[in-house]
Each structure stands twice: as structure tokens, then as C-alpha cells.
Simulated assay, not measured.
Amino acid sequence: MTTGDDLGEIIVEFVRNGPYVKCSAIHVATGREVSAMGPANEPKAVERVAIAKLRRALEAGR
């Protein structure tokens, strides 16, 4: 579990499938989930994309 500065608690999960990794980010307070896919050798970059996507999804839901 990680904390997005202004987002609160976020659960981050990685699933590798060959040369790709899927990163799911779940906002604990709302249960909103998003995912992003990218190269398995860059998991932190894929995590940043997933968290940015989650931030946009939460802002759209306001």
C-alpha cells in the first residue's frame, strides 16, 4: 500500500505477463480502480501512469 500525497491510501498491484506488466491502482477510500500496462522493465513508470490515471478518474467523479 502506498500513499498518494493528496489522494490518501492507494493499493498498487503488479501482474507480469511476458514482456509486459499490468499495474492496478485502487483508491482505498472510494474503491475506484484503474490500470495501466507497459514494459516489464519499467514498473515504476507504469505505476506513475496508473496513479495519474487514478487521479484523473477521481477528479472526473467529483
Rank of each mutant, 00 (worst) to 15 (best):
M1D: 07
M1Y: 11
T2D: 10
T3Q: 14
T3C: 11
G4C: 09
D5C: 06
L7T: 07
G8Q: 00
G8T: 05
G8E: 04
E9Q: 15
E9V: 15
E9F: 13
I10G: 12
V12S: 03
E13N: 11
E13W: 08
F14E: 08
R16G: 13
R16L: 10
N17M: 14
G18Y: 07
P19S: 14
P19R: 14
V21S: 02
K22P: 05
K22Y: 06
C23G: 01
S24I: 10
S24N: 13
S24A: 08
S24Y: 13
V28C: 12
V28L: 08
V28R: 12
T30L: 04
T30F: 06
G31K: 00
G31F: 01
R32P: 00
E33S: 07
E33Y: 01
V34L: 04
V34R: 10
S35V: 04
S35I: 01
G38Y: 05
G38I: 00
G38H: 01
G38K: 03
G38N: 03
P39H: 04
A40Q: 12
A40T: 07
A40Y: 09
E42F: 00
E42S: 08
E42G: 06
P43T: 03
P43E: 07
A45D: 13
A45H: 07
A45S: 15
V46A: 02
E47I: 08
R48Q: 08
R48E: 10
A50Y: 00
A52H: 05
A52C: 03
A52R: 07
K53E: 06
R55T: 06
R55I: 08
R56M: 05
L58S: 02
A60P: 04
G61I: 13
R62M: 09
R62C: 05
